[in-house]
Amino acid sequence: MSNYILPLLVFGIVLYGIFKKVDLYGTFIEGSKESFKMAMTIFPNLLAMIISVNIFIDSGFLEFIIHLLLPFLKIPMEVISLAIMRPISGNATLAILNKIYTKYGVDHFYSLLSSTIQGCTDTTFYVIALYYGSIGIKNIRYALKTSLFADFIGILSSLLICHILFG
């Protein structure tokens, strides 16, 4: 089913363009051209973000923090790592999610909880760096705070909702 969405969407857009007598080829090229300019501004932002986040994660400091938190929480370490890593690294959390599925089984409560956390939040740092970086904004004001707050509430809600629905 999901395989049909993209081709049908492109079909519909092109058909409507023909119907409205748009110079399809020229317009496509005109729009696509912008991608080079975008890529040039995006790349330094990606690079900066990845270096910083990877040094932080690979140093093992996060694991150290998680071990400190562990005795106070009734959730296994992998789920806490997932929740903490979620805003800073999409790849790291996807790897952790795979680990949780393998360890507990895909239909286990922890797997359902982790899937919900993964689904209801986004890689906030990455999106912020990419979106604001692409237009050269230097002062993002309270953008990170509102987004991180949403992530935090998303994680708490996941815990609550999963306990009610699957607990």
């Binding site: 986004d122 604001y132 904004i137």
Partner: peptide, 22 residues
């Protein structure tokens, strides 16, 4: 060089998921 309020509202919606079908 400064984020506008509209931009922040937009990125707030965007980063909080908005996925209906994960």
């Amino acid at each position: 060089e400064k984020a506008s309020s509209s931009m922040i509202t937009f990125t707030t919606i965007n980063t909080s998921g908005v996925t209906i079908i994960p």
